[in-house]
Amino acid sequence: MALKELASASNKKAKRVTVHDVARVAGVAIGTVSRVVNGAPSVTEEVRSRVLNAISELGWTPNVAAQGMRGVSARMIGFIFSDIRNPLYSAMVKGAEDALTEHGYMLVVASSNSSPEREVALVELFTRRRADGLLFTVEEESDAGMLQAIRDARFPVVLIERELALPIDTVGADHFNGTRQAAEYLLSLGHRRIALISGGKTNRVGRDRLGGFLQAHQRAGVPVDRDLLRLDSFASEYGFRETQVLLGRERRPTAIISSGMHLLSGVLEAVRMKGLDIPGDISLITSNDTELARLATPAVSVIRYDPYALGREAALQLLRRIARETPQDPIRIEIPTEFVLRQSCSPPRMIVK
């Protein structure tokens, strides 16, 4: 008998606490417990306190998988970006996190390491985890697997600095007008051979930057030498190599627009190795206001925007989409850029024809 009683007591101890137990102890309906757990604002403070006390007393832990199966919001947003080492993404994540926290959502971030295959795996993971929505900066806008993964996702998606052939909201900086203003300024100084070094010619950022560059030349009636367009990478070593090639030409550029955070260090190194003076021998403008741009000698003029504001606006748009507060048609939102003039630009010392 003693063994049976011990076994019975052990079974009672091991019995799993359920949401029904919490509802019974708190004296509320099961749905009320779910609303408290998910931070619904419709619950009174008195009821919320009773439920939380019952959860604490019983030691109950919500079953996230079961919540998802019942259609209960996980209050979780995913954020997939390409490179965890890029400080731009850190600022975007902070902006998104602050906005989401204010509305009771948790942000879960993941880096794809610039791999479309990993992007697909991450989208599928957030789908299985019943995320409420996704912020996403894709690596390849035309990747078929990634496009299908987004089609199959059961939550709204807002793209950051990218566009897809899908009806999805996008939020990005106004790179078109920022680059146009920079090129127009150099043209006004008398530059006629301006190089553009950038990456992303197959994504929104690269297309917009090139479009602004070309429009500035078209408005000024100045033809563009396509050989001065180097648009294949944002990497520092690419900036170094292409700047060396450009400055080694007989008809070298008199100005460079370096459009990409990591490009600037490579461009500056190549200019120094050639023994050229900034801005006397070559004028320079870069994008993204970094510590290097501010502390270089001379300080480098920049096309600047606020990545924190970009991340925050993307999160707010996603929340509007989750709440169905926006029109069904996709929305394109642009964060303004500004051209900050420093000491790295001057009229060309000699006209290179």
Rank of each mutant, 00 (worst) to 15 (best):
T254H: 02
S114W: 10
Q181P: 01
E141Y: 10
K13Q: 14
R118S: 06
D174M: 05
I285D: 00
Y308L: 08
A173T: 07
Q218N: 07
E139V: 13
V224R: 07
G248S: 14
L147A: 14
N86R: 10
A96N: 08
R252V: 10
K274F: 07
L264W: 01
N86L: 06
V352Y: 14
V93W: 02
A255W: 05
S111Y: 05
S188I: 00
A23G: 03
N53Q: 14
A183W: 00
G68V: 10
Y305F: 15
R241E: 09
Q67G: 15
L263T: 07
R118W: 01
P336E: 11
A96V: 03
F176Y: 11
L318T: 14
A74M: 14
F240V: 02
A299D: 07
L295I: 10
I257S: 04
D227N: 13
F213H: 03
I80S: 05
V302E: 02
R342A: 08
L58A: 04
L210E: 06
T243P: 11
D169P: 08
V28F: 06
T137W: 02
G311M: 09
E124H: 13
I80E: 08
I333A: 06
A173H: 03
I331E: 14
P223Q: 01
V224A: 03
N53D: 15
R230S: 05
A110Q: 09
Q148R: 15
P156A: 12
G200Y: 02
A121Q: 14
L58V: 08
D132F: 11
M106V: 14
N86W: 10
E325C: 11
I55Q: 01
T44F: 04
I331T: 13
E237S: 10
